[in-house]
Computed example of a mutant assay.
Amino acid sequence: MRWWDIDPVLELERNLFPEDAWSRGMFWSELAHARGPQATRRYLVAEVPREDAGRIVGYAGLAASGEQADVQTIAVARDLWGTGLGGRLLTGLLRAATAFECAEVMLECRVDNVRAQKLYERFGFEPIGFRRGYYQPGNVDALVMRLTVPENSAQGTEIHG
């Protein structure tokens, strides 16, 4: 993801998460940490060709800190749900976690988002707890999930879902 992707990403973000969409400033802040030798973030976009310009149909982000990475966001346009795009974005994030030499990857998922939970479970994430009232408005709980990265992954072996 680059700065020029923020506006189309925001459009998709607001469509998918109208009540708790990230702001332009949040994306700018994340991207500020995604470049250079001290980078701690990796953000991806997925686009499909459209006449002269690509339509952004998905995006994902990861933050790394020490040996732990956190999936910050994954989103796919509704018309592409069930196509495997979410899995491809997650694969990209897990490769980034390997590049950051992280031993585990964490994420939060709405307890009522069964589709996402199934995706994460297919990749080896396991539920480890809850965060009560994490998603606002609505006071919806988050399921916390963790993936332990195999030791040899940090030495160059790719993670596959």
Rank of each mutant, 00 (worst) to 15 (best):
V45Y: 05
D79P: 08
Y43K: 12
R110E: 10
G61C: 08
T83C: 12
C102K: 12
G54M: 05
L62Y: 10
L62V: 09
E108W: 06
G82Y: 01
A99C: 12
I56M: 04
V48D: 07
C109H: 00
G54Q: 06
G61D: 02
E101K: 15
G54C: 11
P49N: 13
G61E: 05
V105P: 03
V48E: 12
C109N: 03
R55P: 05
L80A: 01
E47V: 03
G66R: 13
D79R: 07
R110D: 05
V105G: 03
A99Q: 15
V76W: 00
L44N: 04
T91R: 11
L85N: 04
S65Q: 14
L107Q: 08
A103Q: 14
G58P: 01
W81H: 15
C109W: 00
V111G: 11
L93Y: 11
A53F: 09
V48F: 05
E101I: 01
Y43P: 08
L85F: 03
R55G: 03
E51R: 11
F100H: 12
A75N: 08
G86V: 00
W81A: 01
G84C: 07
W81E: 09
Y43T: 10
A75R: 03
R78D: 11
G54W: 07
V111K: 13
E101T: 10
D70M: 05
A97Q: 13
R78F: 02
G54Y: 08
P49I: 12
G87E: 01
E101D: 11
L107R: 00
D70Y: 01
G92R: 08
T91G: 13
P49R: 14
T73D: 03
I74V: 15
T91W: 12
G66I: 11
G84F: 07
M106L: 15
R110A: 09
A103S: 14
E67S: 14
Y59E: 05
C102N: 10
L89T: 10
E104S: 14
V111A: 07
L90Q: 06
T98S: 15
A60T: 10
L44I: 12
V105H: 05
P49K: 13
V57K: 00
E101H: 15
A77G: 09
A103E: 15
T98F: 06
E67M: 10
A75K: 02
A60Y: 08
G58W: 00
R110I: 11
G87C: 09
G86P: 00
W81T: 09
V71C: 02
A69G: 13
G86Q: 03
L62D: 06
S65Y: 14
V48W: 01
R110Q: 07
I56W: 00
A63H: 10
T73A: 13
V45H: 02
A77H: 01
L90M: 11
V45D: 03
A77F: 03
R110K: 06
